[in-house]
Design a protein around this nucleic acid. Structure first.
Lengths: 162, 162
DNA sequence: TGCGATTAGTTCGACTTCGAATAATATTCG
DNA sequence: CGAATATTATTCGAAGTCGAACTAATCGCA
């Protein structure tokens, strides 16, 4: 499809619109990269229900068994109310389970099931492959710098909202 | 609140849970950074309705007046059906307007209003400030590398879904 | 020890985004 | 030229996330 010449445009090289004002916009690029990354990964992971979308959460539960819901929600950047239905579905799919806390009768603790551990292990293998394709052409040293920079931004943003 | 010692945990330095498996996970960090960045920015921009959330879209419309809805949706990574209510609300707030296309009776073209141009200019000033705080401690050269790396990832991800 | 403040999880209505289906229109091809 | 196919925007029900309000429980302090 030839470029639309009826209105002034600035295409990037693949037919998507862009804007000079956004060229250095971190927030915008984070959002776009995140939307595309999650959609792409979830499209490929068709046998795992909602687990691919919440692999970050599941990874944290795997290495921190028995944590409370509010801590998990905080850690992945979602509201505690959002976690209710997320955990409902992961529990229904047999990926994790909630247990009552021995220390605090208000609290629930969250644990992976045996099936959950297997699913998480498989999804991490797929995720590694997907990330290799996402990051193709970026050398390892730069990639490590990007990850470190993301950590700094996350820490800064967390500090902004205190 | 002291560390919870009843279950094995791996805290990071600010009381948020983490996981070794996620330390190098680009997808997860993109998502977390994006959630926190947008929430933080939107919390500060209390006088602008939904415009702050869609500043990326508005920036593209500003520099590409008169584009079709599906191209805008593709460019910001959302489904065309999502754009319908987004444009409805931005139009209702007087930020932009849709016009019928002269070339294609199915299509609508999207234009900023005068008010929209002003709002976008103001929001970009605020966004620049917000991004400075988000990226505090990251030197300019590394930041440029991060932006470039995000562009490569976005291009790779777009290529994966074709 | 009792009480006020705070916390943990849930509910509910609202907001944001998705994907299938639809109507209208444009394009392609025999 | 007409039928078949593809495209654009919209609708609608569903999924994902939010934030206020609520109940139950805990904590800290006088």
């Amino acid at each position: 499809m030839p470029e639309d010449r009826t209105t002034a445009t600035q295409n990037d090289e693949d037919g998507f619109l862009s804007a000079t004002a956004l060229d250095q916009s971190l927030g915008y690029k984070l959002r776009l990269a995140q939307i595309l990354a999650y959609r792409s990964f979830e499209e490929q992971m068709t046998d795992y229900g909602v687990a691919p979308r919440y692999l970050g959460l599941l990874g944290i539960v795997a290495e921190n068994p028995g944590q409370a819901q509010n801590r998990l929600a905080d850690s992945i950047g979602l509201q505690k109310s959002s976690l209710v239905t997320i955990l409902d579905r992961l529990e229904k799919d047999g990926i994790l389970e909630r247990r009552a806390s021995a220390q605090d009768r208000r609290a629930k603790t969250v644990w992976l099931t045996n099936k959950g551990e297997q699913v998480v292990a498989e999804l991490f293998l797929h995720a590694r492959d997907h990330e290799a394709r996402m990051a193709a052409g970026i050398d390892d040293h730069l990639l490590a710098d990007v990850v470190a920079a993301l950590d700094v931004m996350i820490a800064n943003l967390r500090g902004l909202s205190d």
